[in-house]
C-alpha cells in the first residue's frame, strides 16, 4: 500500500487516489500550428524511467484535486508531493 501525502489533506492511503500518468508531459502550445510529430510525442511517447518519476495522481475519494507526486518506480519510495500548479 502506497501512502501519498496530499498537499491539501495530508497523508492518505493509495485507495483514495486514482493514477493520472506521467506528470512531465506537456501539451503543444495553443493557437499555433502543431505538427504530427509534436502530437505523436505528446499523445504516445513516454520516457517510462526506472527510478524517479514525476506523475499525476487524482485525490478522487478525498479533496478531488489533482496533485503531483515524485516516486521511485522501482522501490515505490515517494520523495515529494506538490499541488498540480507548483513545480515539484
Amino acid at each position: 500500500m502506497l501512502h501519498i501525502k496530499c498537499p491539501h489533506c495530508g497523508l492518505r492511503s493509495q485507495n483514495e487516489f486514482s493514477y493520472g500518468g506521467d506528470g512531465t508531459v506537456k501539451r503543444p502550445d495553443l493557437n499555433k500550428e502543431v505538427s504530427d510529430k509534436e502530437w505523436d510525442t505528446f499523445v504516445y511517447l513516454r520516457k517510462s524511467p526506472r527510478g524517479k518519476h514525476v506523475e499525476l495522481w487524482h485525490h478522487i475519494s478525498g479533496c478531488r484535486q489533482w496533485i503531483k507526486v515524485e516516486r521511485d518506480t522501482a522501490t515505490h519510495e515517494i520523495f515529494k508531493t506538490s499541488k498540480v500548479n507548483e513545480d515539484i
Binding site: G21, D22, T41, L45, R46, R50, T73
Partner: peptide, 18 residues
C-alpha cells in the same frame, strides 16, 4: 518490461510504459 531502459540507452523514446 525493460524495453524503455534499453531504448533510453539508444536515445529512442517509445509509445510504452512499464
Amino acid at each position: 518490461g525493460s524495453t524503455s531502459i534499453l531504448a533510453e540507452m539508444l536515445n529512442i523514446t517509445l509509445p510504452i510504459e512499464t
